[in-house]
């Protein structure tokens, strides 16, 4: 079965460019604006969407995404609400892959089987769950794979060659390389080390390798995207939402701020190998 994720990576490969994967927090700054942002992403150049599930305790996220999550929760977002957003998106867009990204507890709280059934029905393509390492694959990874949903694993600078096979074993869709040891939105310490790591991972898997954490500009996208099959941008998009708000509320600039930034980043990925 060719999944939306595999299809999209094959398509961008044919264009000789990396995929632009964009992260937004579901429900930030409010449910309606967030839905409008989501709908605007593909046209602006997003090849694939990571939709953040807000969580009260995002241990792996920097301040920008922490605050985005708090705005979403304050706006009344729930895991069911996130799935409803995907369902709504899918009525108009059958091809852009959507990966849900978050932490395990909201999913565990809903119940894994119930969640997976709802995710399949809504049109979710993949999951990234930060606090589920391969050691906990029985929890959600294996049930998700059985349900036909990709389980995308993070590999990090601390994942050495000895451990990589463990991490890659049940990974599907793509491999997400975290560019540094740190939280989302921190600075990449060494670009050379990132491309070396991408090559190293490719020695272990045929899956596409996307790089995320710390990619902020079109120049970063072009630079990192030279070697990676995809680049993931999140923090700056969540910051664009934050900067567009007045008194914490969305303005007529909010959707446009994200759309313009995505368009700019897309120009970066297009020239990555030019």
């Amino acid at each position: 079965m060719s999944t939306r994720i595999a299809t999209r990576f094959a398509a961008v490969k044919a264009e000789n460019r990396p995929a632009l994967v964009t992260y937004v927090m579901a429900g930030d700054p409010d449910l309606a604006t967030s839905q409008a942002i989501l709908a605007a992403l593909p046209q602006a150049g997003s090849d694939m969407i990571e939709l953040g599930i807000p969580f009260s305790d995002p241990m792996a996220d920097g301040v920008a995404i922490q605050l985005g999550g708090q705005r979403a929760l304050a706006a009344g977002q729930t895991l069911r609400g996130v799935l409803a957003m995907v369902e709504d998106f899918r009525r108009k867009d059958e091809i852009t892959p959507i990966v849900l990204m978050g932490y395990y507890n909201p999913i565990y709280s809903m119940g894994v089987d119930k969640f997976l059934a709802a995710a399949v029905a809504a049109g979710v393509d993949g999951l990234i769950v930060v606090d589920l390492p391969p050691e906990e694959d029985d929890e959600l990874c294996l049930p998700a794979l059985a349900a036909g949903i990709n389980f995308i694993r993070l590999t990090t600078p601390t994942t050495d060659d000895k451990r990589l096979p463990t991490v890659l074993k049940n990974t599907s869709g793509f491999v997400y390389y975290v560019s540094m040891t740190g939280v989302t939105g921190a600075a990449i310490k060494s670009r050379g080390a990132v491309s070396d790591a991408v090559e190293r991972i490719k020695g272990h898997t045929d899956l596409p390798v996307a790089v995320g954490f710390g990619i902020k500009t079109a120049a970063d996208a072009a630079d990192i995207g030279r070697h990676a099959d995809g680049i993931v941008v999140g923090t700056v998009l969540v910051e664009a939402v934050a900067n567009s708000l007045v008194d914490g509320k969305a303005t007529d600039k909010t959707v446009g701020a994200v759309r313009d930034l995505v368009a700019d980043l897309f120009a970066g990925v297009k020239r990555a190998r030019g």
Partner: peptide, 20 residues
């Protein structure tokens, strides 16, 4: 050996921390 006391415990951490 997996750190479980019955159904409780485990190792629910980000990959960066797992090798450590």
């Amino acid at each position: 050996e997996f750190g479980n006391f019955g159904q409780f415990g485990g190792r629910f951490v980000a990959e960066t921390l797992m090798p450590l």
